[in-house]
Design a protein around this nucleic acid. Structure first.
Length: 451
RNA sequence: GGGUCGCUAGCUCAGCGGUAGAGCACUCGGCUUUUAACCGAUUGGUCCUGAGUUCGAAUCUCAGGCGACCCA
């Protein structure tokens, strides 16, 4: 049996070396000559132990605790992953996140940053008089976005319910009620596929400001995201997956028409004809001639424009870019453009080729809103499962009277990906949705290991 | 939805038609100023599942499961 041993003791604040000297321990425990052997033989990597002792620097200069007493706080029954290689298996990192967190400081740092981003955004909004109000997750009608909801059921009321796909329609009711600045930062659920950019439950913040329009929301977007970037990246020049991204405002503003024309040479405003079908046909021919796909579901000029944008422009928008003025057909909740017929006052923010925010001057005209939602309902009947429904109570609220309002929605997960240099949305969600494993899955994963 | 790749010990991986392996971890013993791997020994496996080909399958074929990445 030796006379000396070294352990590394770590808690969330970091590691420190334990200097274990047989003579010191025995002198402190004259009644237990085996104290050194017990400590070195009973303690394994992963156990939680407590120690008492004095600080010293070893001959190698490492700050250490010279241990005189110790106690086992919690025993690890499962061995830790290889201390050098860590958890290389991506799937295992997601399925057993607790292990990933133990062995990967980088993963821990990502979730610390996520927390700081969220708290910075809340503080920024609170300081400017925005009020956070929680709206229902369980809804009889899922509205406010083009997406399919999760369906559930309330037993006592025998009532079918859906999980919310957006917070929009309730926050607008609050504006009707007189709150001029409201927001909600919370979980949204969409019954859709899973990818490096999509998780069925994700976090968004929606912000509503009365007497503002989408131009004001652009400035708000810049300031809010810059505040988060400064908090976790220390500035506005960041690197994402090897690409330099400059978040210094002001960010580029460009209309969807101009961006599509730049990329393809196609001027969609020139396709307009007196007959909507003729407009659509002219645009379709031009797109086909330019080598673009023309999906049948894109049944009008506006949808074709968006299609052309998605095919040719979207992924090329690396530096932050506000894309302005969307077709009315794709934006049933946005206000008609003040000067451009057929368009709405809406922007989406793209960074590293990904939609990161969406905003508009709100549609507050209840008559216009009703006809747009009825058009959506018609699409739904025609087989589009993502088309919106008519929410009569929401329309009633608009009839009571809503002030001009700007709104903004930001995808928190995608923003966190950007600011933590994470390639997959699963890297920024602690427990992303995964298909259950057939055999060992849930039961074995229940035995947690500790650091 | 399409394609490519992966799944072998707790972890990281090798083996690619002929007795299932290595390093680390675990257990036991030795060493003791170490910074991923000190020295010895012992443990440890439904080679993802199922079917097929074969004298013989972790290995080849097919189907399925679970993932990763790319494309739409």
């Amino acid at each position: 049996m030796g006379k000396l041993a070294f352990f590394t003791l770590a808690d969330e604040s970091g590691p420190i070396q334990l200097y274990l000297e047989k003579a010191t321990l025995q002198a402190a425990h004259p009644d237990n000559p085996e104290v050194f052997a017990q400590l070195t033989s009973l303690v394994d990597a992963g156990d939680w132990i407590g120690v008492r002792g004095s600080l010293k620097r070893t001959d190698r200069g490492e700050l250490s605790v010279k241990v005189v007493d110790w106690t086992m706080l919690s025993k690890a029954l499962q061995p830790l992953p290889d201390k050098w290689h860590g958890l290389a298996d991506v799937e295992k990192r997601y399925r057993q996140r607790y292990l990933d967190l133990i062995v990967s400081p980088h993963t821990r740092e990502t979730f610390r940053r996520r927390a700081r981003i969220v708290s910075t955004m809340r503080r920024w909004l609170d300081e400017r008089g925005f009020l956070e109000i929680e709206t229902p997750v369980l809804q009889t009608e899922a509205g406010g976005a083009d997406a399919r909801p999760f369906e559930t059921h309330h037993n006592a009321l025998d009532l079918p319910l859906t999980l919310r796909i957006a917070t929009e329609l309730h926050l607008k009711r609050l504006v009707v009620g007189g709150f001029e600045r409201v927001y909600e930062l919370g979980r949204i659920f969409r019954n859709e596929g899973v990818s490096t950019r999509h998780n069925p439950e994700f976090t968004s913040v929606e912000i509503y400001q009365a007497y503002a329009d989408y131009h004001a929301m652009m400035e708000l977007t810049e300031e809010l995201i810059v505040a988060a970037a400064r908090e976790v990246c220390g500035g506005t020049l960041i690197s994402y997956q090897g690409t330099e991204v400059d978040l210094t405002p002001p960010w580029r503003r460009a209309t969807m028409h101009d961006l599509v024309r730049e990329a393809t040479g196609l001027d969609f405003s020139s396709f307009e004809a007196s007959d909507p079908l003729a407009s659509r046909a002219r645009a379709a021919d031009a797109m086909a001639a330019a080598g673009l796909e023309v999906p049948a579901a894109a049944d009008c000029l506006g949808r074709l424009l968006v299609e052309a944008f998605e095919q040719t422009v979207e992924t090329s928008l690396i530096q932050p870019t506000f894309v302005l003025d969307y077709p009315v057909e794709n934006s049933p909740l946005a206000r008609a453009h003040r000067s451009k017929p057929g368009l709405v006052e809406r922007f989406e923010l793209f960074i590293v080729g990904r939609e990161t925010a969406n905003a508009f001057s709100e549609l507050i005209d209840p008559v216009d809103q009703r006809s747009r939602l009825e058009a959506q309902q018609e699409r739904r009947r025609a087989g589009d499962p993502e088309a919106q429904t008519v929410d009569e109570d929401f329309l009633h609220a608009l009839e009571v009277g809503m002030p001009p309002t700007g709104c903004l929605g930001i995808g928190i997960d995608r923003l966190v990906m950007l600011l933590t240099d994470s390639p997959s949305i699963r890297d920024v969600i602690a427990f992303p949705l995964l298909r259950p494993e057939g055999r060992s899955g849930a039961s074995e994963a229940g035995h947690e290991a500790d650091a």
